[in-house]
Structures are given as C-alpha cells and as structure tokens.
Amino acid sequence: MFKHSGDKEAEYAVENAVRGNERPVEYPGMAHAVFGSPHVAGLGQTEGDVDGEYAVGTCAYDDTALGAALRDEGGFAKAIVGTDGEVLGCHVVGPDAATLIHEVSTAVAAGADARGIAETIHVHPALSEVVQGAFRAAVDYGLPGL
C-alpha cells in the first residue's frame, strides 16, 4: 500500500526466497503520510475504527513553544489509547507531521505503551512536544508526586 511497506516486504521476500526462511512480514508501527497542505500523518486506528473503550488526547501546535512560533501553520496531534495503555492510533496534522509520527512508530515497534511516550523526556523547545502533549492528555499524565 505504501512505498515504505513495499520496501519492507521486499526485504522479507529476499530473505525467504534466497535464504529459505518462511517468515511472515510484520508491520509494527506502520505509519503513513500525505504531503499536502497541511501535512497529515498517522498510524493505527482512528476513533471510528476502535471497538470498545478508549481515551483520546490532543495537543495543538500552539500549545507548545516551538509550535506557537508556527502561528500561520497551525496543527495538532491526537493520541488514541486503549484502557490498558496500548497505543491504538496517533494522528498528526501540520508542519513536519511525517517526521513527528516516527516517534510513535518507533515506540510502538519497540513495545512501548502510551504512558511510556508521555513520560519520555522530550527536547524543549521542539515540535515533538506536540506528540508528547497528546499522549499526556490521553493518559491523564500529572507530574509525579503531585
């Protein structure tokens, strides 16, 4: 469906055909992006796809220091989280959305949950704080000890 998933499928095809393995292709944290205006990127499910209970957190670019500097651009991130903390989906609309979604893609592929993303120390000021803010909102993250 995507060039980057096709590249991964080709790796598995060579591995299986040339080396005699029989490994199925895995797609952990498969993200996608549309390079329009604005950029749109996401992975996993949308709210319309989710069955059962879930939490949603959003964070606007304007709610972060560097994002506020992009006033004319706008944008937001949305995190969709299962009741067990599983990352069900994440969607970003705005500048560098295709780059920002990789934080979540890597975290999901590594087995991280939503709280792990929320608690990860992010560089300040950086646009990645938009993604962190969405996950913090989804897991109702408060400062430790407060």
Rank of each mutant, 00 (worst) to 15 (best):
M1H: 15
H4I: 12
G6M: 14
G6C: 11
G6Q: 13
G6E: 09
K8W: 10
A10E: 15
A10G: 10
Y12E: 04
V14T: 14
G20C: 09
G20A: 09
R23K: 11
V25K: 06
V25C: 10
Y27N: 14
P28C: 11
A31V: 04
H32G: 12
A33T: 10
F35C: 04
F35Q: 10
S37G: 11
H39G: 03
V40I: 15
A41K: 00
A41L: 04
G42H: 06
L43G: 02
G44I: 01
Q45I: 01
Q45T: 01
Q45L: 15
E47L: 08
G48N: 12
G48R: 10
E53D: 12
Y54D: 01
V56E: 07
G57E: 03
A60V: 02
L66T: 05
L66S: 02
G67Q: 07
A68E: 14
L70E: 07
E73S: 14
G74P: 01
G74L: 01
G74Q: 01
F76M: 11
F76K: 05
K78P: 00
A79Y: 04
I80N: 01
G82P: 01
D84M: 03
D84G: 04
G85A: 06
L88D: 02
L88W: 07
G89V: 03
G89F: 02
C90N: 00
V92W: 01
V93E: 01
G94N: 04
D96V: 10
A97V: 03
A98P: 12
L100M: 12
L100Q: 05
I101E: 10
H102P: 10
S105N: 13
S105A: 15
T106D: 10
T106V: 14
A107G: 13
A107R: 05
A110Y: 11
G111I: 15
G111Y: 13
D113E: 15
D113G: 14
A114G: 08
G116R: 02
I117H: 03
A118G: 12
E119Y: 10
H124A: 13
H124Q: 15
L127C: 09
L127S: 05
L127A: 08
S128Y: 04
S128W: 03
E129N: 09
Q132P: 06
Q132F: 08
G133Y: 02
G133N: 02
F135M: 05
F135C: 01
R136P: 00
A137L: 05
V139P: 00
G142N: 07
